[in-house]
């Protein structure tokens, strides 16, 4: 049964987000990883580990996966991130990180500005829910820390 829900809820939890929450893609540990990093949001307990396999002269993300537990926004964001980054070169991944970061902060309006976000633009639904921004950004910050070879843990707080 699909129940009547208000507009803001429907914009935040779009079908693609609920789909990736229930069936996260690339949701596995990676044995042949070249780098990985853990992320944690102490406020709500969201936590994950992002695994990357960098190949071809240290410039391409050949494979990316994650493991972790948290809310729907968090899990869908991590899952969609792995889809968006697989096969991309690192410069493109960093550009996408920056565009996604600006999207969450409402500094990038996907309807008015050229971008490479693709499906990721569904996260503009978060504009009505600023307290949930960190749920969507945790996986991306963790991925960036893995790329930069940081040790330790990335925290949202």
């Amino acid at each position: 049964m699909k129940v009547e829900s208000n507009k803001e809820m429907a914009e935040l939890y779009q079908a693609v987000i609920l789909d990736h929450y229930k069936n996260p893609r690339n949701f596995r540990k990676m044995d042949e990883q070249t780098c990985s990093h853990q992320g944690f949001n102490p406020l709500c307990g969201d936590r994950l580990e992002v695994y990357l396999k960098i190949g071809q002269g240290n410039s391409t993300i050949e494979d990316i996966s994650f493991e972790g537990e948290g809310c729907a926004i968090f899990k869908a964001s991590a899952s969609l991130m792995t889809e968006a980054l697989k096969g991309k070169n690192i410069a493109a991944a960093e550009q996408l990180f920056e565009e996604f970061r600006r999207l969450l902060l409402k500094q990038l309006d996907p309807d008015r500005e050229p971008h490479h976000l693709g499906k990721l633009k569904v996260f503009s639904g978060i504009w009505q829910f600023p307290v949930r921004t960190k749920c969507a950004s945790l996986a991306w910050h963790t991925m960036k820390a893995a790329l930069e070879g940081k040790t330790g843990q990335t925290k949202t707080e």
Binding site: M9, Y13, A72, F129
Partner: peptide, 12 residues
Amino acid sequence: IHPHDLGTFLDQ
């Protein structure tokens, strides 16, 4: 259902 998703839903 994660508490934060539920919390947002109830708040609405």
